[in-house]
Computed example of a mutant assay.
Amino acid sequence: MKAFDIRKPEEKLRASIREKIDNLNKPKGSLGRLESLAEQICMIQQTLSPTLSHPCHLLFGGDHGIEREGVSVSPREVTWQQMINFTRGGGGVNMFCRQHGFHLRIIDVGVDYDLSDNPRILNRKIARGTRNFLYEAAMSEEEFGKAIDTGIEMVDYCRKEGCNIICMGEMGIANTSPSSIWMSIFGNIPLNECIGIGSGLDSEGVNHKQQILNQAVNNFQATNPNPAPADIIRYFGGFEMVAAVGAMLRAAETGMAVMVDGFIMSACMLAASQLEPNVLDYAIFGHCGDESGHKRMLELMNAEPLLQLGMRLGEGTGALCSYPIIESAVRMLNEMNNFENANITKYF
């Protein structure tokens, strides 16, 4: 796969950033999480006066072969139906993009339906869904590379338009299954502790999902005793998930802030960090969702989410809801006065 050159932000500016934050006319530390968030954005942009420019949201769609095993309560046709719904502005992702001024791109990387005649969906279809990872790798090395490249391509489009903060979302029935497996393998956590209800499984459905995914992992490990991270990502991932991984890596490589949504997108960031650990310096985790294991997955990355609203819709909606907090952190730095200019005695 393509090599990424993701560098840790230069540390030499950090002391000046903290000095600026501490000298704003407020008690030291009184704006809490906004202060650490502002520091992170300054470090990403390597400036004391950060900006947020042309925010973009990439929504990747793809179907999963493992869905054929009954691991999701939702049928696969919901993927293409929702993709069309997004083009009409009727999804949760549409509402939040409108509210917060995000440019939305809808990309088909692997939906099991012909969407090529819809002008509002970018056609980057690799195949009509992945293969069933219960029996074989979800995608070939060539398909894996195409998915990564699609994520890169979409980020580069956004950069050319002036974007410096980007968000990713997904539409793909059964994608909590590969997410749970990535979490288990990369986090060294028993798989059953990583599996939840997805889009609404009952207890019997969860038990069935656990059996299927445990068998899939056992089959994989029997023939792959020492897999590289890319092998694990390729074997279990969805096209929409791997495209998101590529987008995250490219965005970080080019110095953009990457907003991370719920369980699926956190799993993609976890996978991306296995390939390039420095990507986490660019990640802003917007939301801790209601999916079982999400909090634990965030802990694997030492992530501190901005919101916890009990959401588990996906599509990038939880991250989009956090955007006003990110805006507030930037405004704090650029619009609050300091003690000296305000003629206020520094009282700490």
Score class of each variant (00 low, 15 high):
I152E: 05
S116A: 15
A252K: 03
K26F: 04
E11S: 14
D22H: 05
F144W: 13
F348I: 00
G198L: 05
L333Q: 01
A303V: 04
I165K: 04
T51D: 09
M297C: 13
G90T: 03
N224Q: 12
D22R: 04
G151F: 00
K26I: 08
E35Q: 02
E10I: 13
G110P: 02
A38G: 11
A216G: 11
I66N: 07
L34C: 05
D112G: 03
T176N: 10
M241Y: 08
D22M: 05
M43Q: 14
S53G: 02
A147R: 12
Q215G: 11
R68M: 10
M168Q: 14
N188S: 14
F239N: 06
V111N: 06
V111D: 03
I17N: 02
A228V: 06
I152V: 14
Y323S: 06
F348H: 11
N25P: 06
H287C: 04
S180R: 13
D112P: 01
M95I: 15
T79D: 04
K8G: 01
M301I: 13
A319D: 11
G65T: 09
A15K: 15
A127F: 02
T130G: 12
R296N: 15
H294I: 05
L249W: 00
H208C: 07
D156G: 02
R18M: 12
S322V: 10
G65N: 09
Y323A: 03
G92C: 07
E315R: 10
D114A: 10
K146P: 11
A138W: 03
C268P: 01
S199D: 03
S273Y: 03
V279G: 05
V93H: 02
H100D: 07
S140G: 14
A222L: 09
F339I: 00
G61K: 00
E39W: 12
Q81Y: 07
N337H: 08
I197K: 15
S328K: 08
M248G: 11
H208Y: 09
N25W: 02
A216L: 11
L201V: 01
E204A: 14
R124F: 14
E161V: 14
L309K: 07
G172I: 04
I66V: 15
